[in-house]
Design a protein around this nucleic acid. Structure first.
Lengths: 344, 344
DNA sequence: GCTGATTTTGGTAGCGCTACCATTCGAATT
DNA sequence: AATTCGAATGGTAGCGCTACCAAAATCAGC
């Protein structure tokens, strides 16, 4: 029977390389994946044939034959939020020295969307999965538990990892920022929050804990909205908060975008920062230290989280079962001018 | 011969579905990909079997058998730059109703890295490729020309598309912004630029054209650096520019990050904006309209570029050869307070 | 009712690679 | 010298799916 014309458009296959190098196909496969299992001389012959033909292995065929794709599935709630962009950058950078690909999914902060994407990702049998947060739905959790590959939950840490975790405590972050504001003398400290995803909720809880401990908590100080965060929204939230409680003397913002909106509004309304109003943000974007006045914020290890998540997953793939399944990378309070209140 | 134990971990295959539905495997395949070619009754039986088993097709097997992966390869120079994050979001959103996956690559503004990633992407036989800019290396261009799939160059337009293009003129954007500043009375307008990738270069060219036409060009007005852009860098560049040319009365910034750095530095140094210094940025990030004073900028259609690129590629995949191979989505000058100079 | 055209369905043979097992061969052991 | 062993290499049989072709079923026209 006449062989069918090559479907693949004439790209060289492993068989072509094998023929040119005068070895069996399987030996080429091994030379490429486990060079130490092939003798020096053959390895060189094969390497030369690969280069001569410009052979690049087909990842699809590889995945099909080995029942495992060299893919890291990554689920984040947003692609444009700078925080997750940094995490994703850390992931990509940490994988650039390997042949792993990244399969990125945007859950839009939706648990259902996360389930759906998980299902899609799983159909590829990924080498590892990285998911954001620790509040997966029960269905998603079950899918992850039976995924048969390393799973890393990122951004937060918690008591019951599906497999591994890398993050920090948003609760402590919020509490630390607010404690600092209380210490330097602010009393009527408002909380401004947008989106209010689980991590925002925990920052709010940290705020509340700090305020209650100091006997300063008042529910009217809290202003939140489910609307996605933006600088514009920061301004609007601040206006609302001030209308509700004109005696406000500080704000802890859910994130830096909101803090920036507050800062701009203070400029516009000629409200002195830090004298009349103190401002603290969360994440410590580059611009916070350049702003005028510079803005106090909680520095979070975004890039490092992506990097570490990949490192842990790769260790597991390589058979070294990491001892620490849950890694807390911490955060750092950056005290700046926006809360530099002259003690009175 | 005894069949080998299932490698794939027992997930249902198309054969399982076919058996349950009492049809041939190929019919299941068709029912899933081209439902109109299968009779109504069988389609329902098959659909039911699929749901009962929780069958999800294996994309790797699909890609191998059809010599074409349902993947859009996307190459961008940066993942954290908000501009590209928006483009990528547009791409993801436009593909979310399909079974296409996205394969994202970060070129780090390097032509060589772009070539390398292209090689990797091509090994998967993607359904389409989206690449940033129009300044590919000769090697990359050749790879793209022979890719055998739709190719869309984004962000810019130019005279010689590899296949299709979606973008706008950075030259005209720069010229428009600077013309506006000249019109309202600024004379010693500096150019502040970071990174200086090809698009930045063209904005600079637009700046220069506007300045020369008005007889205002002076090379000492131009301050650039190859360093990546940031708000901090904007401040530094502005300080340099001012040191070099204290009589500066305006700046056109390569992008909004830099403009924001300038704005903050003006606050800090008590330089009146727009009276003493006028500021214009590029891209029109959300925060520019909230800043105090609000900052004039060139609004660029980032999300729309991603959306349109996907639409054009999909049209081509579906066999409808789009008439317009090069689409200019334009830009819009947003006049704001930072250049609202009182006419004198 | 018959013929030819047009669906609709199924069988077979791969896609390019690797798991599994078999074979070869030289070195070490007895 | 015979036996054992491990390392190096190769052959075979799929992985799960679809392209291609063939067969069966349906339809239209006379």
């Amino acid at each position: 029977m006449k062989p069918r014309a090559r479907r693949g458009g004439g790209r060289p296959t492993i068989a072509d390389v094998a023929r040119l190098a005068g070895v069996g196909a399987i030996t080429v496969s091994r030379a490429l994946r486990e060079p130490e299992r092939v003798s020096e001389s053959l390895r060189q012959q094969i390497q030369q044939a690969v280069e001569e033909l410009g052979y690049v292995p087909d990842p699809n065929a590889r995945a099909l034959a080995s029942a495992r794709a060299e893919v890291f599935g990554v689920l984040v709630p947003s692609l444009t939020n700078n925080v997750f962009a940094e995490v994703v950058r850390g992931i990509y950078d940490s994988l650039s020295d390997s042949s792993f690909r990244v399969q990125l999914g945007n859950t839009h902060y939706s648990g259902l969307e996360e389930e759906r994407l998980l299902q899609v990702f799983l159909s590829q049998r990924p080498a590892a999965l990285i998911v954001s947060g620790i509040d997966q739905t029960a269905t998603a959790r079950k899918l992850l538990e039976t995924a048969g590959c390393p799973v890393v939950q990122i951004m937060e840490t918690g008591p019951e990892p599906i497999d591994m975790m890398v993050g920090f405590s948003h609760f402590e972050g919020g509490r630390t920022a607010v404690n600092h504001m209380i210490e330097v003398g602010y009393r009527k400290i408002g909380f401004l929050g947008a989106r209010m995803d689980p991590r925002s909720q925990r920052r709010l809880a940290g705020y509340r804990a700090a305020m209650e401990t100091a006997g300063l908590f008042d529910p009217r100080l809290v202003t939140t909205t489910p609307v996605p965060s933006s600088v514009t929204l920061g301004r609007d939230l601040f206006r609302d908060a001030l209308a509700k409680m004109p005696s406000l003397d500080g704000v802890f913002c859910n994130n830096d975008d909101i803090a920036l909106g507050v800062l701009f509004e203070c400029h516009r309304a000629s409200i002195a920062v830090p004298q009349t109003i103190g401002i603290a943000g969360f994440n410590d974007l580059d611009m916070m230290q350049v702003a005028f006045p510079s803005v106090t914020s909680i520095r979070t290890p975004r890039y490092e989280i992506g990097h570490r998540a990949v490192a842990m997953a790769r260790a597991e793939i390589d058979g070294a079962r990491p001892e620490n399944r849950v890694v807390d990378l911490g955060f750092e309070l950056k005290r700046r001018e926006s809360t530099d209140r002259p003690k009175n």
